[in-house]
């Protein structure tokens, strides 16, 4: 059980909340206390659009603890519209349909649970947009 840890990263996981540097304008995801470009501590939270495209992808057959029941599942690096690259699972898409460069949108899904009695961890995944544009 890692309840406080999951709770701490909720904003990032539920809503792709990153940070924007007030000095140089760099958008970071995951959120950072110090800007990853200029090192400034003047960063504010910002919810990202959830739009992006696939930079790379693969399939996980044996995942970390808690992911066994979902395997096999697709994972990807997604280049977000705001710039950052994010690692995430793909959902609602068949492996044969995935291509580098294809547009995706963020959805909130179950990531895993801490056993049958533990909390359910929800977070971002990506899928091909349901509505084009």
């Amino acid at each position: 059980m890692e309840v406080p840890r999951h709770w701490r990263t909720q904003s990032a996981r539920y809503a792709l909340e990153g940070t924007v540097c007030q000095r140089c304008g760099e958008t970071s995801f995951p959120p950072r206390d110090l800007c990853s470009r200029c090192g400034s501590g003047e960063v504010i939270a910002k919810r990202l659009s959830g739009r992006g495209e696939i930079y790379s992808y693969s399939t996980v057959f044996q995942g970390p603890n808690g992911f066994a029941e979902y395997a096999p599942y697709l994972v990807a690096l997604v280049r977000l519209a705001e710039g950052p690259l994010v690692a995430a699972q793909l959902t609602d898409v068949d492996p044969d349909a995935v291509q580098i460069g294809m547009p995706v949108e963020m959805v909130t899904r179950r990531l895993r649970e801490d056993g049958p009695k533990g909390i359910v961890v929800y977070g971002y995944k990506f899928r091909p947009p349901l509505v084009a544009g």
Binding site: Y70, D92, T108, R110
Partner: peptide, 12 residues
């Protein structure tokens, strides 16, 4: 799907 429940469906 395996990763869906009333929470995820409600959120969307």
């Amino acid at each position: 799907g395996l990763d869906e429940d009333v929470v995820t469906m409600s959120v969307e």
